[in-house]
Design a protein around this nucleic acid. Structure first.
Lengths: 218, 218
DNA sequence: CCAATGTATTCTGTATACAGTAAGCGTAAG
DNA sequence: CTTACGCTTACTGTATACAGAATACATTGG
């Protein structure tokens, strides 16, 4: 196997993303660069580069003289992400060749079933979910679109992993995915799009309704 | 008036964007950091930070040991951007309060007319166009969506400004915008969305057909 | 006692220094 | 003559150093 060659800034970026997801960092928390750099065992340079990358992905924000801070979880932003994702993924399906979609639908069906069976721990649910959606849009030839979807999904997952208890999420993900996969497998893209949109919105709504908003700022 | 306080990295970012638009840099050209930094009169640090930001916006790409390069203009990528923008802006309109849209429609109508009259030079067309679209989506409460639209439009405009002769673009922009504005003013969002999508796609298509692909890599 | 201004400290933003890797070139071996 | 290996050069990736701004605190005047 080829040995992975990654620069520090991308490793730092990944680490920060997982910390945001596992709740190791307080939403809205200010970032002390020297302290965090020391904690990560790197210098400020790759840390700052990672922060800047995350900033233009919308995961972190900065004010001029005051440095960076993890964006506070806001109910409204979470609500904003769902329709964007639904729309983008719907577009991705529409742009995908129909014959590949039915093929993909079959693969996704089996994969969705495996979700329920496995006892997966917290972090893995997200990983699995990303894998699933990655496959779903893999037939879309619009690479730019796929990249945008992934970045947006990252942001969404931050909320999901912080707000949703593990078992609930497993169940939700499995159910949603099965419906979408079935539609795709049967060649009905329109139905898949409808299921997709409904599920993003319902999922988001249900999460919000069941959440005591301890995390939220608004 | 409040004095603007900007850090170097954002100024560098802006400068690089305009250079990409005016064609001062060769598409696909590799970036020599020390040389470019000296040319801009800054150190490598803010330059690299700007490059990293632009990279996660998709305007620049990098390979691990080889540094950054301006993304080559690719016909396929230009084709990819149009449907994304059409879809996102359509969503923005759909999410906007109807009553504000008719109001905006009126403002846009007059603004669109002023396009044809004024003899504007190259760079200003893009500026005007951005202003116009900015107003169009200004009623959309989904801030995240608006930010995504702006970043994507930046990428699109790079192609437009490099490929389209000034006078042609003025005419195209004016005509397109008038149609959309009329639909909005009359309260017909669906019609506006249709016009919007048609115009993005037609515009892109017409530009591609009329372009001797000297710039393109594919 | 409160407010306002001066001062110290901390942290960001930027510059510079250092190390390691990749590409180019020449030379030697087949 | 061609190819492969080693060397040199140049540039990236990372670390450190420095300067200036922001904040907290103290001190002084009302």
């Amino acid at each position: 196997m080829a040995i992975e060659r990654k620069n520090l800034r991308s490793q730092v970026r990944d680490e920060l993303l997982t910390r945001m997801r596992t709740g190791d960092v307080q939403p809205g928390e200010g970032i002390n660069e020297v302290q965090l750099a020391a904690e990560l065992g790197v210098s400020r340079t790759p840390l700052r580069e990672a922060l800047i990358a995350l900033e233009s992905e919308g995961q972190i924000e900065s004010q001029n003289g005051k440095g960076f801070r993890f964006v506070p979880l806001s109910k409204s932003e979470f609500e904003e992400l769902a329709p964007i994702l639904a729309t983008l993924e719907a577009l991705a399906l529409r742009l995908s060749p129909a014959e590949q979609l039915t093929e993909i639908g079959k693969r996704l069906t089996t994969l969705a079933e495996s979700f329920r069976d496995e006892r997966v721990q917290h972090s893995l649910v997200i990983t699995k979910d990303e894998e699933w959606h990655g496959i779903m849009v893999s037939a879309c030839p619009n690479r730019r679109l796929v990249a945008m979807i992934e970045a947006t999904r990252d942001a969404f997952h931050r909320y999901e992993s912080l707000l949703v208890p593990n078992d609930v999420m497993v169940e939700r993900v499995a159910a949603e995915h099965a419906a979408i996969a079935r539609a795709l497998a049967s060649g009905d893209v329109d139905a898949a799009v409808v299921a997709l949109e409904a599920n993003w919105m319902h999922g988001m709504r249900r999460i919000l309704d069941n959440t005591t908003s301890a995390y939220f700022t608004d």
